[in-house]
Design a protein around this nucleic acid. Structure first.
Lengths: 341, 341
DNA sequence: CTGAAAGCGCTTACAG
DNA sequence: CTGAAAGCGCTTACAG
């Protein structure tokens, strides 16, 4: 049943020329006669010849393939980034392999090793929240496989980075809560070691400072980037003698958890507690009330990271200085925080 | 800066033996002296030698890699299936490449072509809603690349299939609505050409028949599998002179749209309109009220499809008869349809 | 027990 | 303009 694949060799035999000639004709080399080219091309077409990319990879040590590693593809932010990656890589003739680290350093290492062996031409990566170092990626770069980072970035990364203006997004979100008259604003942040958690926390703190609102340690909680984490911390916050009158969630999952917990506990949003989060638009609109969100240009992040990566791949010399692009976030005000004055 | 990769050739040179010997030692062949093996293994270890999988692929026409094609990775159902696929393939020493068709036949064809050339060992596929034929996959199978289908299956597929008991899930969901006292039950189905849409429609119809409820053509609407589709159709339904008192959505996206539309239009669930859908548990719990859902064992579907695929790959002979596994769905009753009696 | 040779599918200097 | 040869990294009959 197996239909054998057509190779250059067969075409050569059928046409009574050498493999070299066929190869050259196929690549439209100028040193082949128009006549020969025509015969080769016609037969190739007829036989549905397609070059074997594996043979080419072995030869060139290139695969025309880039890898993307994200913590979790089910997360809308990442799946939308992947959309942007595919958009650019597809249009520039590359293929995209998608991998998840499941937020585990161990999986990230395994995937990295695999991709290095498979000779992907480059990588677009959001590191796992467990990854405190990026030696494995730096190794890759030394092997000549460029990496571009997005979303989660840190100072150890010796490459291009694309991130969102977390600090500013967070500052504005907090400022908005203050403008709504909230005085006791809590923040549920992601893990401490994740850079974006720190930036978002800073933005929150600076806004409180600017408007001289009370800063309380017990209102700044860290948790895993999960819905359950958000729910748990909300219970913790609302159980306090001095309850917050607003909660700002540092990620979509966390914010979903906050929303759920407040509903379970019988609070009304925004009047009892105002809520703001870093959410995807589509997601925030599904909630009741819809959640005021710091939205991130995820698709564009994927596009920009990929453009940087392909440029890196296609220029043979390493750039002297790496670029960090900071894309603007956007505050979308919804019912969860908008109080009728 | 580029650190060259270690090859068998170098090890051979350093040890003053032939490449053949190194290769054999590495594969622990019985015809190599323990002494030589030890020297080779030690040096390989020291040099961090890893075999080049591309060379092996070229040689064996095998890649130890399987592909998954789903319409959309952002869909929780599919991302959870992918989790199950990864679980099995990882534990059996295979790698997983994830691709999306974006519900476009054209993209599905491009991906299929690419995977065939890249010599994946097999494929786990949920076809796009545009795909009315599966010739491209049957071609693949003729080339010796087995395919296992899940979720969206049809009669044209000459292979193993893993699906959920759509008909029964749909029947039970409708029965539940009837038990809640609903009399005018509408159904918003997916595209007609998708098999699961048809099965779900049948389950709905048979339940109505069994309990002798009114069946009305204008209460059975088809739409794309999108939230916007669900919203649009709900507006259409609720605008009718004879409004339904329950709406059953054939997919998660559609059901989200129904929920949103009803809230926008000011209806209360479940009292004005009861709602049931095919949703992911985590998703349905986020809604207010939470949505009664026919939940599917998505992770298990991925596991089973992958087990079938790897067995197919590893047994050289095509099985005489293909298996269709039908996994049970589960009705999870929530606030959107549960009326206090 | 070990090595030389052929080959997987392709490209590309090197000759002619 | 065309072909023979070498080589990408590996494996495996075939000799010895």
């Amino acid at each position: 049943m197996k239909r054998p694949t057509v190779t250059i060799k067969e075409i050569a035999k059928l046409l009574n020329v050498s493999k070299s000639t066929v190869s050259r004709a196929l690549r439209d080399s100028s040193e082949i006669s128009t006549e020969t080219k025509k015969r080769v091309l016609e037969l190739a077409e007829q036989l549905h010849y397609a070059p074997n990319p594996i043979a080419l990879s072995l030869l060139k040590n290139k695969t025309q393939t880039i890898g993307v590693i994200v913590p979790d593809i089910a997360n809308r932010f990442y799946s939308s980034v992947i959309g942007g990656v595919e958009d650019i890589s597809y249009s520039r003739g590359y293929h995209t392999m998608i991998y998840q680290s499941h937020e585990l350093l161990e999986r990230e290492l395994a995937v990295t090793r695999h991709l290095a062996l498979r000779r992907v031409d480059g990588l677009v990566v959001a590191i796992s929240s467990q990854s405190e170092h990026v030696d494995h990626f730096n190794d890759l770069q030394e092997q000549g496989i460029p990496v571009v980072y997005f979303d989660r970035v840190n100072e150890l990364m010796a490459s291009h980075k694309v991130q969102v203006d977390d600090y500013k997004g967070s500052f504005e979100a907090t400022e908005h809560l203050i403008a709504q008259g909230c005085k006791r604003i809590a923040h549920i942040a992601g893990p401490k070691q994740v850079s974006i958690s720190r930036n978002r926390l800073e933005g929150y703190l600076d806004a409180l400072r600017k408007y001289k609102l009370e800063i309380r340690d017990e209102w700044m909680l860290h948790t895993e980037i999960t819905q359950a984490g958000g729910t748990e911390r909300t219970y913790q916050l609302m159980a306090m003698r001095d309850r917050p009158d607003a909660i700002f969630g540092a990620s979509e999952r966390i914010t979903m958890g906050i929303h759920l917990a407040l509903r379970q506990l019988g609070y009304r949003m925004p009047d009892d507690v105002a809520v703001v989060g870093f959410c995807d638009l589509a997601m925030s609109m599904l909630m009741d009330p819809p959640v005021t969100s710091v939205t991130q240009p995820s698709f564009a992040m994927g596009q920009q990271a990929t453009t940087l990566l392909l440029d890196l791949i296609e220029s043979n010399n390493t750039p002297v200085v790496f670029e960090t692009r900071v894309l603007p976030s956007n505050l979308l005000i919804q019912g969860s925080s908008l109080r009728k004055s």
